[in-house]
Amino acid sequence: MKIRKFLSNFFKSFGGEDDYQAPEPAPDHKAAYLEYKAAEDEAHRLQEEEKEELKQFARLIGRACKSKSSSAGAIINGASGLPMIGGIGGVDAAGNSFGSRHRGIGDI
Score class of each variant (00 low, 15 high):
M1P: 03
K2A: 15
K2T: 13
I3N: 08
I3W: 07
R4T: 14
R4P: 00
K5T: 10
K5E: 10
F6S: 08
F6V: 08
L7Y: 05
L7G: 01
S8M: 15
N9L: 15
N9Y: 14
F10L: 07
F10Y: 11
F11C: 04
K12Y: 06
S13D: 04
F14Q: 11
G15L: 06
G15A: 05
G15Y: 10
D19P: 00
A22W: 11
P23N: 09
P23H: 07
D28G: 03
D28Y: 05
K30H: 07
A31D: 14
A31Q: 13
A32P: 01
E35M: 06
K37N: 10
A38K: 15
A38V: 13
E40K: 15
E40H: 10
D41V: 13
E42P: 00
E42V: 06
E42W: 11
R45F: 15
L46D: 04
E48Q: 15
E48C: 08
E49R: 09
E49C: 07
E50S: 15
E50H: 09
E50D: 13
K51D: 13
E53H: 14
E53C: 10
E53N: 11
L54I: 12
K55L: 13
Q56K: 15
Q56R: 13
F57T: 09
A58Y: 14
R59I: 13
L60K: 10
L60G: 03
I61D: 08
I61R: 14
G62R: 06
R63H: 14
R63I: 13
A64S: 12
K66V: 12
S67T: 14
S67G: 04
K68H: 08
S69T: 07
S70N: 09
A72R: 06
I75G: 00
I75P: 00
A79S: 10
A79H: 01
G81N: 05
P83N: 02
P83W: 03
M84R: 00
I85L: 09
G86N: 03
G86T: 02
G86H: 01
G87E: 04
G87R: 02
I88M: 11
G90D: 02
V91C: 05
D92T: 06
D92G: 01
A93S: 10
A94W: 01
G95V: 07
N96D: 04
N96Y: 02
S97D: 06
F98E: 00
G99D: 08
G99N: 09
S100P: 01
S100C: 04
R101H: 12
R103M: 10
R103N: 11
R103S: 07
R103G: 03
G104C: 04
I105Y: 00
D107E: 15
I108D: 03
